[in-house]
């Protein structure tokens, strides 16, 4: 197994790299705000075993997805090959690599949820939002997708709506979920 090297920031080396225009080209465009956020995530999980996946979770939770620059930054700072980070990112359906819609509707399609009718939840969402699995509505308001097991098999079929998990979801619950978000958005506006 690839051993995680202790997180170490060597700003001196870092700055030297950044000054060299050809080296580390993709990171030059990194938004300072994003960089600050990634640095905070790194500090929070510093030195803990198995921290990569937790840091990636943290970035996605705060940013909505894991931008490529963030992965490049992590690779350098943690001494983990970029290839390994992408192996993790693409293995789990949970992680997003591009900006999602404002609200995420995730349907678990793991074995238990599948058997308990997650397919019907998906069809209902597709019908109500007029998009397909993995797509985002034109107004970028809703993104829906199915993922493999989210680890809540006891509550099958399960859905995650904006980081809140719902268990034993019935097809008739779906319309209400969407409506509540819409109303909230309207009142905020």
């Amino acid at each position: 197994m690839y051993k995680l090297r202790k997180i170490r920031f060597s700003y001196l080396i870092w700055e030297t790299f950044c000054m060299n225009a050809s080296a580390l080209a993709p990171m030059e465009t990194m938004d300072p705000e994003l960089r600050g956020m990634v640095e905070r995530c790194l500090q929070e999980w510093e030195g803990r075993e198995g921290n990569l996946i937790m840091i990636l979770h943290e970035i996605q939770n705060r940013h909505g997805f894991v931008p490529r620059e963030a992965s490049l930054f992590l690779a350098e700072a943690m001494g983990i090959p970029m290839a390994r980070i992408y192996e993790v990112l693409t293995f789990y359906h949970y992680f997003k690599l591009i900006a999602p819609g404002k609200h995420n509707l995730t349907v678990c399609n793991g074995t238990a949820c599948y058997l308990k009718g997650s397919g019907r939840l998906l069809t209902e969402l597709e019908r109500r939002l007029s998009i397909k699995d993995g797509e985002t509505t034109e107004d970028r308001m809703f993104h829906m997708e199915s993922v493999r097991c989210i680890g809540c098999c006891g509550m099958a079929p399960a859905m995650v709506v904006d980081q809140k998990t719902f268990g034993k979801v019935a097809v008739t619950d779906v319309a209400g979920m969407i409506e509540r978000i819409r109303l909230q958005e309207e009142s905020d506006a």
Binding site: A83, I85, E87, T90, F91
Partner: peptide, 19 residues
């Protein structure tokens, strides 16, 4: 070198550079 990695999983698995 770590240019190649196994991306995705199951039937979707493919060897490719990161991203």
């Amino acid at each position: 070198v770590w240019a190649l990695s196994f991306l995705q999983r199951g039937i979707q698995t493919r060897m490719a550079p990161a991203g």
